[in-house]
Design a protein around this nucleic acid. Structure first.
Length: 476
RNA sequence: GUGGCUAUAGUUUAGUGGUAAAACUGCGGUUUGUGGUACCGCUAUCGAGAGUUCGAUUCUCUCUAGCCACCCCA
């Protein structure tokens, strides 16, 4: 016991632990154990904090999903010439009410709205398109060579009821193109969304529809309502409400009794004018050319009011993976810039939900027994004693410049434990530096498979390691 | 926002009206210079609060959170 104490004395943490374990032992031994328990409870009785509802931490274990998502988005953006846009989380409420439209769920019940200390009503952004439009107008981007292409990777906020893959703070990666009316812009958006998932290794398909112009939609709406009104007695209660409130949503109904009514319902495509129809057909031609799998979906409406012409959503191309419906979606919003006070500017955009994508990707990989490969660790640097530890940190830094992917743990003092860690990581080599090596200015390189060790000069460590790893120095 | 299900160590799961079991992980140890094994030890106010009870982790209620369906969306 005394030996033990002596050993650990210099370390505060260890002392505490010993004290604690001694306490516990005595408390167990004595019948007055209850008292002991009480004191320890009050000792530890500090409040712990939980997350707010619908909020989540993104932990290191999911870095393997988040990192490639950011990299993919960033690569696609630079390839397709999108510039990074970063806007504030807080904006004026009006921005979203005006762009998304009153009557949409997002505006009516999901926005985080509060008054700040100046009594100004502010809103935490529920999406970014409106902010992008604001930025486009505010910074006079119509004076730049068109199209202006912007992308973002950012958190959004919606006060919805949480579910798996559905959070109150969630991330979207999105792309917006301003000043490009041609169907090729629509196709480009869909291509980017498609590639984003392709690069992640998740097969997706596109559901697509056209909403035409507001005028065309209005005529269609009348026709739709007329049709549904004639079948009113067959409808579910929900749909009777929709008939008045939001007729476009009638087509979404999943009630069995409404299905037969839905089958013969007029389809919006037949009510589009020649121009709108042409635009849509051209988008589809592009998709055929690009071999992007898509489904025409005459019931696809989308819940934000600003869309015109093309609308689309991205789904996992595997019905068994329940990823909370669409992974992402987008469409054209040719009238929004003008509506928001800018010059008439055609625009198209897409937003992808990242938490949902991670969820879908996890499920997909699990089903197909796939794993995301990490960059393998090439060597473990083990150290023994204070002197060695000091040298080690320096050597670790040198190895970073040398481009050797290493692991280490300065927290551990025993060589045994460190080699155990090295073994768990399945590194091919361990670099061992102890008291003796510090004095000699050397290091041991241990081949973890064969156990063969070699002593090398610390200065030659990087080239020797690289040669052993099958890497060659750039100089040679 | 509506309805339903669930809540036990870091994780996954046992279990009981008499304060709890296991696996994995983590930390420490089996002389601080050598790994893959083995062994030992430590780690849970049984989601929070109230009620019924001699006694509740177990029964009841409230709350909270998560999940599922709907609504909607990403």
């Amino acid at each position: 016991m005394s030996k033990k104490e002596k050993k650990v004395m210099p370390k505060k943490v260890e002392v505490k632990k010993i004290v604690k374990s001694v306490k516990e032992k005595t408390s167990k031994a004595t019948p007055a154990g209850k008292q002991e328990k009480d004191t320890s409870a009050s000792e530890r009785g500090k409040k712990t904090y939980n997350l707010l509802r619908g909020m989540h931490d993104i932990l290191p274990k999911d870095e393997k999903y988040w990192k490639p998502m950011y990299q993919n988005a960033s690569n696609l953006a630079s390839h397709f010439q999108f510039g990074r846009l970063e806007t504030p989380i807080l904006e004026e409420i009006g921005l979203f009410v005006r762009s998304l439209g009153k009557g949409t769920d997002v505006v009516d019940k999901e926005m985080y709205v509060f008054e700040d200390k100046d009594g100004v009503k502010v809103c935490m952004r529920p999406e970014l398109t409106a902010a992008a439009v604001r930025a486009y107008i505010m910074h006079g981007m119509w004076n730049m060579p068109q199209p202006v292409k912007l992308w973002y990777f950012a958190p959004m906020f919606r006060h919805d009821r949480p579910q798996a893959g559905r959070y109150r703070q969630f991330h979207q990666v999105g792309f917006e193109t301003f000043g490009h009316a041609d169907p090729s812009a629509d196709a480009e958006m869909i291509l980017i969304a498609f590639n984003f998932y392709k690069d992640l290794g998740l097969p997706v398909e596109i559901h697509i529809n056209s909403l035409g112009t507001p005028a065309e939609r209005a005529t269609y709406k009348i026709e739709l309502v007329n049709y549904y009104r004639s079948k009113r007695s067959y409808l579910c209660e929900e749909c009777r409400n929709r008939l008045v409130k939001n007729p476009m949503r009638l087509l979404d109904c999943k009630e069995e009794r409404c299905q037969s009514v839905k089958e013969d319902a007029p389809q919006i495509i037949n009510w589009l004018g020649v121009e709108s129809k042409n635009h849509f057909m051209k988008v589809l031609e592009y998709l055929d050319e690009l071999s992007i799998p898509y489904q025409l979906d005459s019931t696809l409406v989308r819940g934000l009011n600003y869309y015109t012409h093309t609308v689309f959503e991205v789904y996992v191309a595997d019905a068994e993976i329940s990823a909370q419906s669409a992974l992402g979606g987008g469409g054209r919003y040719d009238l929004l810039v003008e509506e928001m006070g800018g010059r008439p500017t055609p625009a198209v955009g897409v937003a992808l939900g990242l938490e949902r994508s991670v969820l879908a990707l996890k499920q997909y990989n699990e089903k197909h027994h796939l794993e995301i490969k990490k960059v393998p660790t090439e060597a473990f640097v083990a150290q023994l004693g204070d002197e060695a530890r000091r040298i080690t940190l320096k050597i670790i830094d040198e190895l970073r410049f040398g481009g050797v992917k290493i692991a280490f743990n300065l927290c551990k003092t025993s060589l045994k434990t460190q080699l155990e860690l090295a073994d768990n990581l399945k590194v091919p080599f361990a670099v061992i530096i102890g008291q003796k090596e510090v004095q000699d200015g050397t290091a041991i390189i241990r081949d973890m498979e064969s156990g063969i060790q070699e002593i090398v000069d610390q200065k030659k460590l990087i080239p020797v390691l690289k040669r052993k790893l099958g890497k060659f120095d750039d100089k040679k």
